[in-house]
Write a protein that binds this DNA or RNA. Structure first.
Length: 586
DNA sequence: AAAAAAT
């Protein structure tokens, strides 16, 4: 279901289907030099010489309709001035010098044009560092806030390298399989592979890739589950140089002989700590190690995430070669910040408390409500709808169509309340999410970090409210540390609760997951040398914070909280903030 | 125990 259904019979909706990636308006002769199907039997064609006659670095003609479709969507939502003073730390052997402007990177014409069309005036901090690292053919592990231009930070240099070098062996391999036949089932040899943990995130990355691939010969594709695999295979048949995928569907396509990674020169894991955790790791190893993917050192490997626990960094060594570790902090200079609140709410009171919060919010603002279970998401959506609130919900048991519909209704504001499971926690770029509510707290702090990262996007005041009760003991300790690092107001009862749970010791992963440096912000290879003050402490950051790159730890903005609610919540909140012994209050 | 990800 979903977008793949659209392309067959129904005409594309909403200003053209993404499947027109290279623009069906452009004659094939212009897109591909000439018709690729015919050219396979013609040894004298421009494709037979390693792509050599065709210069991949020269822009193809403009296509105004496609240009409008790709770039007409208004601004990117990034307020670049806010990113000026973000502290960045690069570690590893001989880290390449960062750039200050896109001109410094000696990028090719195609990518420069697309950067202009995307209205990026200058690189964000993660881009300033990541682009030269990738262009210098180094492996990279980057710890950077989502929404800070992370996607472009890897797409721009990868695509530029593809434009500079052309398709190389990948093209020859693709040609070889067609020798002497009029039709063969084509296998694709993507030069670059981007893996993501959810379908929606893969789709979002693909949308960006189309922008930066505009007027180039590079054809991006996206594949994921829950959608018509036949349509995906037909799309692959049209050529695939950069493939964005979720792991399961990619494995499927590999086993069907539709995709081979023998010539994959760039491997990118987005939300890499999730991709390497217990749920995904076997599939990643299947893709990266048990197929024909070039080994680390021969390919280039990139990993990005907002969180990078030490044990995942250690696991990641298997995939990386002499990599640079990048820690990108986030400035909280003025209005950009996330205020984090923790409220004691018993299970039986959660619903009425939630209604108070929603009632206090303005009608314009989007509210994202996280729950732990799919059943919980169903139930809460039904409840909110019965109460007359414009809510929808998303979780992994929904059809792909339902998932996309829910997300679209939420983004557009038609349903400004979205109840979601972990499926929506990572990477999704939704503007104007004013309030993230952890109706149920997650069981680990990384999940918390990614969830609240859906709000506080540039230009907006972000607010995150978490309901906590005795069921959440497991996260209290890490949550308290996090709030203190982020210079947030910490209710006194929370400290008491944390002290209590501390004595019951031992996180499930064997002790504290993080050193004093904090939350995966640091290159584990630097050892436990104590907190590193290296994050360019420009914004009144205390060195002992060590740099917590994904959370805006730099602002104490509790003042904005009460004001953003009506009185009902304020009083309610205060009542919950009086320092009772909350563990035993029940 | 639960979520995500192939069918």
């Amino acid at each position: 279901m979903g977008r793949y259904d659209r392309q067959g019979s129904a005409p594309p909706q909403q200003g053209g289907s993404r499947w027109d990636a290279l623009g069906d308006d452009v004659p094939r002769e212009r897109k591909w030099g000439h018709n690729r199907w015919d050219s396979r039997a013609d040894s004298g064609d421009t494709w037979s010489n390693n792509g050599g006659e065709v210069d991949w670095s020269t822009p193809l003609p403009r296509n105004e309709r496609l240009e409008h479709e790709l770039f007409g969507g208004g601004n990117t939502g990034i307020n670049f001035d806010k990113y000026e003073d973000i502290p960045v730390e690069a570690s590893g052997e001989n880290p390449p010098t960062n750039i200050e402007n896109f001109e410094d990177a000696s990028l090719g014409e195609i990518i420069r044009n697309n950067i202009v069309l995307s209205k990026y005036p200058k690189p964000t901090p993660v881009q300033k560092y990541a682009i030269p690292i990738v262009l210098n053919k180094r492996d990279l592990m980057a710890c950077a806030q989502t929404g800070s231009g992370k996607t472009a930070a890897f797409l721009v240099p990868i695509l530029n390298l593809l434009y500079e070098t052309g398709p190389g062996e990948a093209h020859e391999a693709e040609q070889r399989q067609g020798q002497g036949r009029t039709y063969v089932r084509r296998k694709q040899y993507p030069s670059a592979l981007v893996l993501a943990p959810t379908r929606e995130l893969a789709s979002q990355i693909y949308d960006e890739a189309r922008k930066f691939a505009y007027r180039s010969r590079v054809r991006p594709c996206v594949v994921y589950g829950g959608a018509d695999i036949g349509a995906q295979m037909r799309d692959l048949d049209r050529g695939c140089h950069l493939l964005v995928a979720t792991p399961g569907r990619l494995v499927d396509l590999m086993e069907r002989g539709k995709v081979e990674l023998q010539h994959c020169r760039y491997l990118m894991l987005d939300e890499a700590d999730r991709m390497l955790d217990m749920g995904f790791e076997p599939q990643i190893r299947r893709i990266v190690e048990k197929d024909s993917m070039p080994p680390s050192g021969k390919r280039q490997t990139l990993m990005f995430s907002a969180t990078f626990p030490k044990e995942i960094q250690i696991l990641a060594r298997d995939f990386l070669d002499n990599y640079i570790f990048l820690a990108v902090g986030r400035v909280g200079s003025t209005s950009e910040n996330i205020t984090q609140k923790v409220v004691w709410v018993e299970e039986s009171e959660k619903r009425s408390f939630l209604l108070d919060l929603i009632n206090a919010a303005g009608p314009e603002s989007l509210t994202l409500v996280f729950v732990e279970t799919k059943k919980g998401a169903d139930a809460l959506e039904v409840f909110l709808t019965r109460e007359g609130f414009p809510a929808t919900s998303i979780h992994g048991d929904r059809s792909q169509r339902e998932r996309e519909d829910a997300l679209r209704l939420f983004r557009s504001g038609d349903r400004p309340i979205l109840v979601a499971t972990a499926v929506a926690a990572r990477g999704l770029d939704i503007s104007n999410v004013r309030h993230v509510i952890n109706f149920d707290l997650p069981s680990d702090i990384e999940e918390y970090v990614h969830r609240i990262g859906r709000t506080g996007r540039v230009g907006n005041l972000g607010l995150a409210t978490s309901f906590i009760n005795e069921k959440n003991k497991n996260i209290v300790r890490d949550l308290l540390d996090l709030l203190m690092e982020a210079n947030q107001e910490v209710p006194s009862w929370l400290e008491a609760v944390a002290t209590e749970s501390r004595s019951s010791a031992g996180s499930k992963r064997g002790g504290r997951k993080y050193g004093a440096g904090g939350f995966g912000a640091r290159d584990y290879r630097q050892g436990n040398k104590g907190p590193k003050p290296a994050m360019g402490m420009g914004n009144g950051v205390k060195p002992q914070m060590g740099g917590y790159p994904h959370m805006n730890p730099f602002v104490n903005s509790s003042s904005s909280y009460g004001g953003s609610y009506g009185g009902s919540y304020g009083s309610s909140y205060n009542n919950y903030n009086q320092g009772t012994d909350w563990w035993s209050s029940n």
